[in-house]
Amino acid sequence: MLKKRIIPIQLLLNERLVKTRQFGAYRDVGDPVASSKVYNAQNADELVFLNINRSERHVEPLLSLLERVSAVSFMPLSLGGGITTFDAARRLITSGADKVVLNSAAYRDIGLIPRVADSFGSQAVVVGLDVRFDEKSAEYSLYSDCGRVAEMVGLDEHLERVTSLGAGEILVNSIDRDGTMQGYDIPLLKRVADAVRVPVIGCGGAGQYNHLKEAFLETRVSALACGSLFNFTDSNPIRAKAFLTNYGIPFKTV
């Protein structure tokens, strides 16, 4: 049986790990290589790194990080943030990334997803969605450029487009819940996971193990990403799984 995954998500800014709140104010939370070593020892299922530097949108910082992380961490690595060209994606994948996360580029360059998927397989292409709930229209809205630019395309239409172009996985992040530790946006995760046939990683808002339980039991997500939960509390992937196993949620055994 395919197991559910718990994925520590690590945000990078100028070679440091940070944690944001609603994509704004951030705190320094350590060194990415040291933390990856710890997550490897804790048998995390996978690691996601996103470069959130808004002034320099290029992949050099991710490449130098990969070199060091792939030597200490023998698990799947997904990297994103500032990937706008096929060459950037190719360099990351041939340097040790298993998947690249495309977000803003998925709105701007319609050809990028199929190019990466044709060369490296659709499983190597994760499309990231940054989503806010708009109270006025009572509808979810998509944002690019680290949450700064509102995109006009609707959620369902975008999902349909990126999956038909070859996206192999969706990472959906709630900007409203980011860093709040108030729980995942369950209706959002449900909507995205019900709309696509590819695996969905839910992100944004985990503050306690009950939030993971709720999201795994009430939605069809394949994986949940956690930032603050592991950064700011004594929680870790081992303890999270020990808790969730009591509710019949399957995880890999070591």
């Binding site: 049986m1 659709s122 046939r197 590819v198 695996p199 394949s222």
Partner: peptide
Amino acid sequence: DRTRVASIPHIGWNS
């Protein structure tokens, strides 16, 4: 087989 496998690609930990 798309009719039997819930999500393709098959991604994740399995025994």
